[in-house]
Write a protein that binds this DNA or RNA. Structure first.
Length: 491
RNA sequence: GGCGCGUUCGUUCAGCGGUUAGGACGCCGGCCUCUCACGCCGGUAACAGGGGUUCGAGUCCCCUACGCGCUACCA
């Protein structure tokens, strides 16, 4: 196809509607715009598509911005940073759209329509019944100038529709889909301006992309059916259309449209769980183009290194929380100590408030015990909490280890007054020494101790846990377990 | 129903007329190991179906099926 090389500088935009939480698909679109801008140079605009007041949710715009910031995406121009093409909220640009509509009508690219919602309903129902295409029947398009004059004089409410051509085929060149053609006889005459004067998304998007000098429109595939109409608007107004790139949709694991209710659907949920933005970004970028080379960096800037829109396939991609978790766990394992602590702070405050008084070094040492087996920050802190505040030891498992009593007694003696440095390696040596004296090794040696101090039979290396909780707590738990077993025996 | 887009292992991508159809994640097995995880080694598994074109088709064309999107005075 023709898009073998994309050239900058470019102007791109992310245009969310403030109607709810940012979801994974939205973030992916924003990310692609950001990455293309970074790799070719230019500006990224944040434009608020808030022309539909009824569906607007207060605070949604702020939360979307906050999620974008969290993921590392920043804008040159936008609703909150301003810029040369302000305002960047469509609700404040109504006049601009009305000017475009006037021009469009004058050039024959649009016409007023006085049909009532009831009549429109009837047309739709009839079309559905008869299996005909559900399109506007063009009634008002065929009005004579006199009839029009009359209706205008009566000041009856009217909308403005695009006058789609009757013949001809609209061909869209798309960077990802390549070539898409729409036969004009199948096109509708969509509403561009509502009866209250506000624009619809088709119009507002086209006008803004032109006025804001946007060169590449990168958006979700759900917009594909609107593209021929926007292309038509550009043609009627003699504007140069932008390059189009329609991103395949993200599907959930059941192959349905990814919804906010799906696992990991919203960015807010991912943040609550302690996913790392770098892992999320990397996963989102890899969907549709395969794995990134292992040497590729994690931060958002290095994601621009090999970023090309033409690498992406045209098919839908399945967003799998399992895959994201594995990517996140991989990054978590590589996370440097200082970042580890910084990123964990909110979760420590929530789950282990007592750590607020801990020294940085102690936090690093503690988190690193569970770092390797955790999938995200919340999971990691919960695992740490599990070691610090274990459930009751599983007393019944004593039956599995007839030597447990003797072993725990010996361990208490060995580690009680012995001059054993309370450090993992020394503890390990001491445990092995005890085992040797009793003729125990391997599972028979470690499992009863592990059960006594953690209540479970798996987890990080035992000596590391011992070091983490400290000598007195370690001995206390051993003693408690031994006592618990004894009590059970006396029943 | 109409229009548009899509369809290679379970998932995610390679493949761009001739390959034992490859990698990664998952899964299974082994090694390591006190356990789990990590790491390393090995294995499992796919061209939706049917017609063409061609000496030869996962690769090009057509049809069917399936999936998804749009079909609002939503975005």
């Amino acid at each position: 196809m023709t898009f073998t090389t994309l050239e900058g500088p470019i102007r791109v935009r992310f245009a969310p509607s403030p109607t709810g939480e940012l979801h994974a698909g939205g973030l992916r679109t924003a990310l692609f715009n950001y990455l293309l801008k970074r790799s070719l140079g230019g500006q990224l605009i944040l434009r608020l598509e808030d022309t539909d007041l009824e569906r607007e949710i207060p605070g949604a715009a702020e939360r979307i911005m906050d999620d974008l910031t969290w993921s590392g995406i920043s804008f040159e121009e936008g609703a909150s940073e301003g810029g040369p093409y302000a305002p960047y909220s469509q609700s404040e640009r109504t006049g601009l759209y009305q000017e475009a509509v006037a021009e469009l009508i004058e050039r024959g690219g649009a016409y007023r329509c006085w049909c009532t919602p009831q009549r429109l309903d009837e047309i739709r129902n009839r079309a559905r019944r008869e299996g005909a295409p559900p399109r506007y029947d063009g009634h008002c398009r065929r009005l004579t100038p006199d009839e029009r004059e009359q209706l205008i004089k009566q000041s009856r409410p009217s909308v403005v529709r695009l006058a789609s051509p009757e013949t001809d085929t609209i061909v869209i060149k798309d960077i990802i889909k390549e070539r898409i053609s729409f036969r004009s006889r199948h096109l509708d005459d969509p509403i561009l301006q509502r009866s209250d004067g506000r624009p619809t998304a088709i119009l507002a998007g086209a006008v803004d992309d032109h006025l804001m000098q946007v060169t590449y429109v990168i958006r979700g595939e759900e917009w594909l059916p609107s593209t021929p109409y926007q292309e038509l608007i550009y043609r009627f107004l003699n504007w140069k259309p932008p390059h189009w790139a329609h991103l395949p949709l993200l599907l959930n694991e059941q192959r349905g449209k990814l919804a906010k209710r799906d696992p990991g659907g919203t960015i807010a949920e991912l943040r609550r769980d302690g996913f790392l933005p770098e892992a999320l970004n990397r996963y989102l970028v890899s969907l549709g183009r395969g794995n990134l080379p292992p040497e590729q960096g994690w931060d958002i800037e290095s994601l621009t290194d090999n970023f090309t829109l033409t690498d992406y396939r045209a098919g839908d991609a399945i967003y799998s929380l399992t895959a994201l978790r594995s990517e996140n766990a991989r990054l978590l394992r590589q996370l440097p100590e200082t970042k580890l602590v910084a990123r964990s702070r909110p979760f420590l405050a929530e789950i282990l408030p007592e750590t607020s008084s801990w020294e940085e070094a102690r936090l690093v040492a503690s988190l690193s015990v569970v770092q390797g087996e955790s999938v995200h920050l919340r999971d990691m802190v919960e695992r740490l909490a599990g070691l610090l505040h274990p459930p009751e030891a599983a007393a019944h498992l004593r039956r599995e280890f007839p030597t447990a009593d003797r072993l725990l007694q010996a361990i208490m003696e060995e580690l009680h007054d012995q001059p054993v440095t309370w450090e993992a390696d020394a503890i390990k040596t001491a445990i092995n020494r005890t085992g040797k004296a009793l003729g125990l090794s391997g599972r028979n040696l470690f499992a009863p101790i592990r059960l006594a101090i953690t209540g479970t039979d798996h987890g990080p290396e035992l000596p590391r846990i011992a070091e983490l909780i400290g000598r007195s707590e370690f001995l206390r738990r051993i003693e408690a377990a031994a006592a618990g077993w004894k009590a059970e025996e006396n029943l």
